[in-house]
Computed example of a mutant assay.
Amino acid sequence: MNKEDIFKLVVQNIYEVIPELEGHDIQPGDRLTELGANSVDRAEIVGMTMEALALQIPRVELFGAKNIGELVDVLYAKKSV
């Protein structure tokens, strides 16, 4: 799975958790908080994505990600290990 696939998965999960964003053009530079995701939404989006990727990593390792693109980079790096 490449970074583009992971990005599409994250976007799909964002639409599922925050349905009012459906149709919004989500970009890698977007921040989940700026899109209206509260802490529970963000945890759910990340959890769903990690489950779909069959990843079990401590969430603390994802805290450095400032936007969706950086989140994808971290998930991709963990998936590639």
Rank of each mutant, 00 (worst) to 15 (best):
G64H: 02
A54V: 11
M48S: 13
E34L: 12
I26G: 06
H24A: 14
D73A: 12
N38Q: 07
G47V: 07
V10W: 02
L53Y: 10
Y76P: 01
T33N: 07
I45T: 05
A37K: 00
V46S: 07
D41S: 13
M1S: 10
N13M: 07
E51Q: 13
I57W: 05
A52G: 07
V81I: 13
A43Y: 10
L32T: 04
Q56G: 11
G36N: 11
I6R: 01
V46D: 09
L21A: 10
N38V: 07
E22P: 00
G47K: 00
S39E: 12
V72I: 12
M1D: 05
G69Y: 08
E34T: 04
D41I: 07
L71E: 13
F7S: 02
I57P: 01
D30E: 11
D73T: 09
E4F: 02
N38T: 03
D41Y: 07
V60F: 05
M48E: 15
P28V: 13
F63R: 06
K79A: 14
Y15R: 03
D5N: 07
R31W: 01
V72F: 08
D30C: 06
A54Q: 13
T49D: 12
M50I: 12
L75V: 03
A77M: 13
Q27D: 15
V17L: 12
E16P: 00
E16H: 04
K78P: 12
T33A: 12
Y76N: 08
S39F: 04
V10Q: 04
V72P: 10
R59E: 15
V81A: 12
N2G: 14
F7N: 03
L55Q: 08
A37V: 06
V46Q: 04
D73G: 06
Q12N: 12
D30P: 01
L62V: 08
L55R: 04
T33K: 09
E51V: 05
V17N: 03
T33C: 02
E44K: 05
D25M: 13
E61I: 08
G47Y: 04
E22L: 11
